[in-house]
């Protein structure tokens, strides 16, 4: 057991402190280079540094390289390559406005190392009912999974601290589930995601000093997707991510096509005089999780963030129950 505990502790400490210590200088550099965007939910003209994906990927790569030194698993190699590719895709999108096709197509290509390195098991495990063998379908699932998890996390990156805070809850839930399922090595491989998100949350929480940008959100989402595949916990991972899945589902079912957020004309939310957020009556605007939360009345940005975190904790509990149900067969 000691051979698992030492790498786990070292990688978690590194993941946390690399992000914790590299983010402040990154903020200074980004501000100096004028890589800032307006925080739309603040009364004053607040400019926030972006993208924070650089410190996130640094924390992930450093900690996972250390883990590779201990375990030498192809799964870790696949994770590093796919996550780094997702970061680069996001970084290109941060710097240059790309078409709606760019992220889904390139993220699908970024998933290929998982297949080439054989870092997957083609059995899909369901709670209570057991496994189903779907070798051909599973390849499609790998290619679809990374764009879906990447864009799902990107789509909830709408308020200060929400994407990183949500990832803290979802990723630690996934790690707990992997421990419950006694998949210890992948559980340890998954831990840096939670610690990286936690360290980044310190600077991303309200009032944000830095935004993750597409590079940060896609990095977090893609790594989450890779862990789900290499850990064989695709269904549990989807359950832990349900609030973000609901957001994407509501958006797609109202817009009825795959489209970039910036291409949508209608505004789902607007500000009250005291700068709370409230749902609009705009019929052309997409339905989103935030708009649905605000249907009950105006709320502050902080209140909405905590409501989303409560939903994430609820779906995390459902995911943990599902992990226990994996051990039960009808």
């Amino acid at each position: 057991m000691i051979e698992l505990i030492i790498p786990a502790i070292i990688s978690c400490i590194l993941a946390f402190f690399v992000v914790y210590f590299t983010t402040p200088p990154l903020i200074k550099i980004l501000v100096k280079k004028n890589y800032t965007v307006k925080d739309m939910n603040k009364k004053e003209n607040v400019m926030v540094a972006r993208p924070g994906g650089i410190s996130i990927i640094l924390g992930i790569v450093v900690s996972e390289i250390i883990l590779y030194g201990f375990f030498q698993l192809n799964e870790i190699l696949a994770l590093i390559i796919t996550t780094t590719a997702a970061f680069l895709i996001g970084y290109i999108d941060d710097r240059k406005v790309m078409g709606g096709w760019f992220k889904p197509v390139t993220l699908a290509i970024a998933a290929l190392p998982i297949i080439f390195l054989g870092a997957y098991d083609s059995d899909l495990a369901f709670p209570l009912f057991g496994d189903v063998q779907i070798p051909l379908l599973y390849l499609g699932l790998i290619i679809f999974m990374i764009p879906i998890t990447g864009n799902t996390i990107n789509s909830i990156d709408v308020l200060n601290g929400v994407a990183s805070g949500f990832m803290v809850i979802a990723s630690f839930t996934l790690s707990i589930c992997l421990f419950i399922l006694q998949n210890y090595e992948i559980a340890i491989v998954s831990l840096p995601l939670g610690f990286v998100s936690l360290a980044f949350y310190k600077y991303h929480k309200i009032p944000s000093k830095i935004f993750p940008g597409d590079s940060g959100a896609l990095t977090l989402g893609a790594m989450y997707g890779v862990i789900a595949i290499i850990g064989g916990v695709e269904i549990i991972a989807a359950i832990a991510l349900l609030p973000a899945v609901i957001n994407s589902f509501l958006f797609l079912s109202s817009v009825k096509r795959v489209v970039e957020h910036r291409q949508i004309k209608g505004k789902p939310v607007e500000h009250t005089d005291d700068f709370k957020l409230k749902a609009t009556n705009d019929k052309t605007a997409p339905v989103t999780l935030v708009r649905l939360i605000l249907a009950g009345g105006p709320l502050t940005e902080k209140q909405i963030g905590f409501t989303i975190f409560k939903l994430a904790i609820f779906s995390g509990i459902l995911a943990i129950i599902s992990a226990f149900m994996m051990g039960v067969s009808l």
């Binding site: 009912f129 779906s315 459902l318």
Partner: peptide, 24 residues
């Protein structure tokens, strides 16, 4: 929202069961 989350979770469990029974 909590009801919808729970409904989605139930649908995943039931859908998974149908998938295992049908495709397995």
């Amino acid at each position: 929202l909590y009801g919808f989350l729970f409904a989605m979770w139930s649908l995943i469990i039931i859908g998974g069961g149908i998938m295992v029974v049908l495709l397995g």
